[in-house]
Design a binder for these strands. Structure first.
Lengths: 359, 359
DNA sequence: TGTGCGGATCGAATCGATTCGAGAGGCGAA
DNA sequence: TTCGCCTCTCGAATCGATTCGATCCGCACA
């Protein structure tokens, strides 16, 4: 623009038109030379590339290209909490990994968005240049978020989200999997079973599980897993943990176990392996041995190296879940209509369950 | 465009011009009404907003706005490996957390890019619509990456990167911190000290530490920490771990400890707390007690809940590091010239170090 | 030699907003 | 009453590429 310097340096970066001019072709031809979207003579293409090289032109401006094509090549991933918190959960990491991997194949990038952001929330969601959005186990604000995005024409995929009309949802069999574990415990002879649940709602703190909290719960995985457990043990009490961490599991475990022996459950079903590991540690803290004095089951199938024995759990294909979401996004962007999907879980007998001790 | 339907629905999404026309003002005025970048009469603004509401217009198209303003509102974060791998390291998570938090304040999003991608690597880096790029402890390809981005006019910040000219680098005192730990061990009376290092180069596998590997190392943190340790124990041997995980630490620990007693080191310096925890477990596996039979130190200051005692380590402000990088990015985008910075680490005496046992 | 055809290239419109200079009123001060 | 200034609004250029239809050229075939 401004001053036309002879060398391609200076402040004004070279544009495709500059390159075209230098190569003695029209901008349209130069564009084709770069994108390959059309026939170009080899010689012409070489000339354009040479001109680009001389001008230090590294390729079409992504912003301009996006405007014209209507695609940014970016997919948003909305996580429920801030990164430091959400990313402590290996299941989220694995899911994100599968998602990023699948999208990366097509050169699509992943933009991290957090549901938790205050003011900027609406702003960034509304103003983010994304071609699609994936909600990872998000709660409350999802309906609003989906509405806004829908109006902007940005398609949405949910992972373990609220199954709403017209939005493909990638799920795992939370209820069935938990039921499987509960049946395992019942078959071993357990009757006094307590739960340690994931957060049922955004902002949940460590607290006893109440029917009200269960009713009001908006976070699917936790709610569904409670139902799965109660399918077998209808009256099972529990503690709601705030995060899926060993520390939270340990704290919840203490609350359940640090009581007189007669009131102590013989088994604890934790809704994640991390929580379960915490419960095992809590038991050890109190001098209880697992599984002799207490059986513990988890959920997820995450290997916890530091545990003395493998957990009895169900494993879910977290990475595959993310990959499936990625493929769904690709299909969506290709004009397809991806279907919802529910992955099965696999029961894994570990060393943390046994028949209850004689009383 | 195409068909002009009376209702704002249908395929053709409303544009700012449509809104302006409906409100009876010019596009320029409508633009100002939305952005607030200029004086508008309250009444006019209300009329524009009402028209927008009627048309289902949710705000300016981010793509078009980006083209015009030259800003996408997105900053890229380049991580060394795929998400599932890089994100197992709590330090990276915390750093990213601080970064995202700081950027989020200004409504800037974080685009995840992985150095590891094969073909798409150059493509996505070159074609990503980012205003700046943050390199998180990346190795080999960094110089090339920086060159490409530089030509595109995208500024770069590195975290624990190669201090190259014109690029601000956010660092921690890796060498000094490790030296501190080494001196602590020396003061306790240790002489036979072995190291468990982080990967020194992209693609490192579990292997003994050699001078050649150290020379060739491109990943700053690992290399600098080896030097810090050797400042005090010049001949300390070691094992290079591939990732910063408990499992890798355990494996490396076994290699160092599963030998005849006389050849066994009395202390092991692991370059991360996760590795250190693994070493502690390895010692337990072999029936050695920590710190009586073996002292262990880590690096990072990450709390490892499942360890029976706190680690002796140095803690680094990982989140603060990310936040500093975020502020540097903001400053850069405001036309400033942020300076490199090196954070100090703090020695923390835990329960994993003691004088060596008598031989 | 005339016609048809296909590949290469070009022109011009377009994507949707932002921005700057200019114009139009309205109001207070001289 | 007139001049000047301030506030609000408008027009038009611009950001940098993509894309569609039209044109042009050479070559094969009748």
């Amino acid at each position: 623009m401004g001053r036309h310097s002879d060398n391609g340096e200076a402040d004004g970066r070279a544009t495709l038109s500059d390159v075209a001019a230098r190569a003695g072709v029209s901008p349209s031809t130069a564009s084709i030379a770069f994108s390959g979207q059309g026939p170009v003579a080899e010689a012409t293409k070489a000339r354009v590339l040479a001109a680009a090289e001389e001008l230090g032109y590294t390729g079409p401006d992504p912003l301009a290209r996006s405007l014209r094509t209507g695609r940014s090549g970016i997919v948003g991933a909305l996580i429920p909490q801030r990164i430091g918190t959400s990313f402590r959960d290996p299941v989220i990491i694995q899911t994100l990994d599968g998602l990023a991997e699948e999208l990366g194949q097509g050169g699509t990038g992943l933009l991290l968005l957090s549901e938790r952001t205050r003011e900027t929330d609406r702003v960034s969601l509304e103003a983010a240049p994304i071609d699609a959005l994936v909600l990872l186990g998000c709660g409350v604000s999802s309906p609003a978020a989906i509405a806004v995005l829908h109006r902007r024409g940005v398609p949405v995929i949910t992972i373990e989200g609220e199954p709403s009309a017209g939005v493909a949802n990638i799920d795992v069999d939370n209820r069935g999997g938990t039921r499987l574990l509960a049946e395992h415990l019942r078959d071993l002879g357990h009757r006094d079973v307590a739960l340690v649940t994931l957060a049922l709602d955004v902002g949940d703190e460590l607290a006893p599980l109440t029917d009200a909290a269960l009713e009001a719960g908006t976070l699917r995985p936790g709610v569904a897993r409670v139902h799965g457990a109660r399918d077998v043990f209808p009256a099972a009490p529990g503690i709601i943990a705030s995060g899926s961490t060993i520390a939270d599991g340990r704290a919840a475990g203490r609350m359940l176990l640090d009581v007189e022996a007669s009131a102590r459950p013989t088994a604890i079903m934790a809704q994640s392996d991390l929580l379960a590991a915490g419960v095992v540690f809590a038991a050890q803290d109190l001098g209880l041995s697992v599984p002799a004095d207490l059986s513990v089951v988890g959920f997820d199938g995450v290997r916890i190296d530091e545990l003395p024995m493998p957990l009895t759990t169900v494993s879910q294909p977290a990475q595959e879940k993310g990959a499936a979401a990625g493929r769904a996004v690709v299909e969506l962007l290709d004009g397809g209509q991806p279907e919802s999907r529910c992955f099965p879980v696999v029961f894994e007998r570990g060393g943390t369950t046994a028949p209850p001790a004689e009383r």
